[in-house]
Nucleic acid binder design. Structure first.
Lengths: 340, 340
DNA sequence: ATGAAAGCGCTAACAT
DNA sequence: ATGTTAGCGCTTTCAT
């Protein structure tokens, strides 16, 4: 059986509270002699404080909950999430916080999700790429527990990348290479990043007086499949754009795959730019030119903010992070026949 | 404030225990009428059971702890672990279990690791690729809590791949391609997979009367760096082996990198085989021929076994899984000059 | 069928 | 400086 404070107290003929305080320099002062004795026998008896009991008494768990974006299964296989989680765990370790990942979301019965979150096992939350109408966020917000939102501007204090700046930088790169017919495959437009990147795209094009025929604005949803499907649409365009700005890397890889299979070469025939920079360079041939968002840092900052709120009541403030442009092999000067 | 059983009880003029039982068909029977009333008001009041309190009362947390192999930081960036964790989370979700990942290991003070594990927050454990002398395993074993060991044969009931079968299959492939001078870069020999694969390599070579000069048995440690360094050693060998069997994929990629940089082509000049199959095919050029171990399945089975033990007292039994050979582009027939 | 009460192991205010 | 005690919110045995 696990040893308890009571066991130590009885053995030493002390009160439980004295033992408790002796072990942790508790609220009341304990004489050095006693403290020493207590610690010694605690060690000898192999005593380990019961965190469950402590949490019940203090109302704190030292645990922050992480709610990933919803997918049916294989949640942890998304490079996106993996980076974010790694950043969160790294930061949590330093702050002596535990992390509980809530992958068990059943969107057929959203109320169960909420129940899980509110059963007092986490002191605060980080929501990753939540839907705008997330019931989970709503309940957590109502409960008064602190939380931050990662990779999405709606729903609460958010930790996001400067999509607009990123899009502008990427498009400037393409324009510098001589591209004028630039298509865009959007992300999920119900997500803020999807909308912001599309809007920035349109704004840039407008500003540079570059035409955007409706057919060159293809709706995707941040998945590789949607990029692949967009490829089919793209191939029918005439004249074919010489460059495509994709709302994220997955889309870009799907597109690249579709184009390659049809004999369209990247970057010789068409330049492709992604966004997020979550994939290792070797994930595609040619390696993808992309805007890297500092996912790990953003995730770590979200965690720190939540913990600061829990521990010191400091308000959580939204932050926007600057992306970093990474030029690799998927972009090049426009093909000769593109120069009219 | 969060509502409690007491709140409901007072509102309804019932006892706490009646409310408790009404909500969960508890040990004692409650009249349908009361049960209905209780559930209705619980819903209205937004009552959520407090899992911490329940855990303290029942002594069960419905949580299994996962202890990854030790690395200083960025634990969750290892493809290895990511696959295993994903398998564990998938299986845990189905069994309504939570998963707590213990990345916060400070090997300078191993006793703190142990303390963390034994603070009653997990009902059982899965250790991933632990060291043979793992203090953490020892304490968990002593505490009597159930646990399984993943990817390592020592330390307890283990869930491992059939390394010997895998090595034999891989080497047969090389021999069929005409290779006779086959080198081996070992994994970490303090880990069972490292030893088993090396031993199987030696056994196969002996059986096929293929010479193994000491210099062609290069010690690595499962990291990409060790593969890269082994490359330098390898390049000095004369005659150079025509094939290398690497103890895992990381080593193989490091080696491939080193060779490519020196102008040695794979697979034209030298064939390379990896092991584990955790990396996406695009991770290298050419894509790596490897023995895939069913990491997700193994991890899921480990979790199920631990949970079965917790819930039904069923003994955890070691299992050995069959790997699957995946032939990709890094192996080919021996180069002409290799045929003497 | 329902209520009362003990207890899970710990914290912390209050007493001595 | 140390002991006593009342919780934290729930489960569960024992009364009624």
């Amino acid at each position: 059986m696990a040893k308890t404070l009571k066991d130590i107290a009885e053995k030493l003929n002390l009160s439980i509270s004295t033992v408790s305080c002796a072990l942790k320099d508790g609220p009341k002062v304990v004489s050095p002699a006693v403290r020493k004795r207590v610690r010694k026998t605690a060690l000898e008896m192999g005593y380990r404080p019961n965190r469950i009991a402590r949490s019940l008494a203090t109302g704190r768990t030292r645990t922050v909950g992480v709610v990933p974006m919803y997918v049916d299964e294989d949640t942890l296989l998304h490079p996106y999430l993996q980076l974010a989680l790694n950043g969160i765990f790294n930061a949590a370790n330093k702050l002596k916080q535990d992390v509980l990942v809530y992958t068990a979301q059943d969107h057929n019965r959203p109320e169960t999700v909420t129940d899980d979150l509110l059963d007092s096992r986490s002191d605060g939350f980080i929501f990753i790429s939540p839907r705008a109408d997330s019931l989970a966020i709503k309940s957590v917000a109502e409960s008064g527990l602190p939380y931050a939102v990662l990779f999405e501007t709606s729903g609460g204090q958010s930790f996001t990348v400067d999509s607009r700046a990123g899009v502008f930088r990427a498009l400037e790169h393409l324009v510098e290479l001589g591209h004028r017919r630039i298509a865009h495959i959007t992300g999920d437009l119900t997500l803020s990043d999807g909308r912001l990147r599309r809007d920035a795209f349109l704004e840039f094009m407008e500003e540079h007086r570059l035409p955007v025929p409706a057919v060159t604005l293809i709706e995707g949803n941040f998945t590789r499949e949607s990029g692949y499907l967009a490829g089919a649409v793209f191939l029918k365009l005439c004249p074919m754009p010489t460059a495509v700005f994709c709302s994220n890397d997955d889309i870009a890889l799907g597109l690249m795959d579709a184009l390659t299979r049809s004999g369209v070469r990247c970057p010789e025939d068409v330049s492709i730019v992604g966004f997020d920079g979550v994939l290792p360079p070797g994930s595609s041939v040619p390696p993808l030119t992309t805007m890297r968002q500092p996912a790990q840092l953003m995730a770590a900052e979200a965690l720190r903010s939540v913990v600061k709120n829990i521990e010191a009541g400091i308000e959580i403030e939204s932050r926007v992070f600057q992306p970093e442009f990474i030029v690799r092999g998927s972009t090049a000067s426009i093909p000769l026949e593109g120069i009219v």
